[in-house]
Simulated assay, not measured.
Amino acid sequence: MREEIYSVHTTRPDDLGAVEIVFTNEREARAYAKDRSTDLRILAASVTRFVVGQLGTRHPVAWFVDGNEQPHRAARPGKLYPTDGQACASREEH
């Protein structure tokens, strides 16, 4: 049986951030990430899908800034994961 899970990771200024919570369905993970992205000192919140016990199944699902879903290829805030190397120095630059 293929069991998918969805993690929510937050990005903070000058901080690595962390996976905060894991959900068993995408809808709940997206709702949490959308809401969490509006919190103080949270630059972005992202949702990633995994298949339990299977390497190589990590797949980005969505990411949010200030409660708004962002395009997958948009430059991400912060200096560390989940950035793609094209990150802005601060939220104010958006």
Rank of each mutant, 00 (worst) to 15 (best):
R12I: 02
E26H: 03
Y32S: 04
V65W: 00
V47A: 04
D39I: 07
E93M: 06
D15M: 11
Q86P: 01
F64W: 07
T48Y: 04
L55E: 14
M1N: 01
A75R: 12
E4P: 02
T57K: 04
E3H: 13
G56C: 06
Q86E: 11
E20M: 08
W63Q: 04
N25T: 11
A74L: 12
A31Q: 11
N25V: 07
R73T: 15
Y32K: 13
R12L: 14
S37F: 01
E93Q: 12
L16T: 13
D15E: 10
V47I: 11
H94M: 14
L80D: 07
V65T: 03
F64K: 02
P13S: 09
A45K: 02
T48W: 05
R30Q: 04
A33P: 01
A62E: 06
R27F: 10
G78C: 08
H94V: 13
T24W: 09
Q86Y: 15
V51P: 00
Y6K: 07
P71G: 09
I21P: 00
D15Q: 13
V19L: 06
Y81M: 09
R12T: 06
P82Q: 07
A44G: 09
G56W: 08
E4W: 05
V19T: 15
V51C: 02
T38R: 15
V22M: 08
A29C: 09
W63M: 07
R30I: 05
T38M: 13
R36P: 02
T38L: 05
V61P: 03
P13N: 12
R12D: 02
A74P: 03
L80N: 10
E92N: 11
R49D: 07
V22T: 14
N25E: 14
C88W: 12
F50P: 01
V65A: 12
P71A: 15
Y81C: 06
E20L: 11
V47C: 02
L40V: 13
D15G: 11
R12F: 01
P13K: 10
K34N: 01
P71Y: 06
R2K: 15
E69P: 00
A87T: 11
E4T: 10
F64T: 02
A31N: 11
V22R: 13
I42E: 01
R12K: 14
R76D: 01
A18K: 15
N25C: 10
E69F: 04
V52C: 05
I5S: 06
E20D: 08
A31H: 10
K34A: 10
R58Y: 05
T11D: 06
A89Y: 12
R2F: 08
V61K: 07
T38A: 08
V8I: 08
G56R: 10
R73G: 05
A18Q: 13
T38F: 03
Y32N: 05
E93Y: 05
H9I: 13
E92G: 10
R76Y: 06
G17P: 05
R76L: 00
E20T: 12
I42Q: 01
R76Q: 07
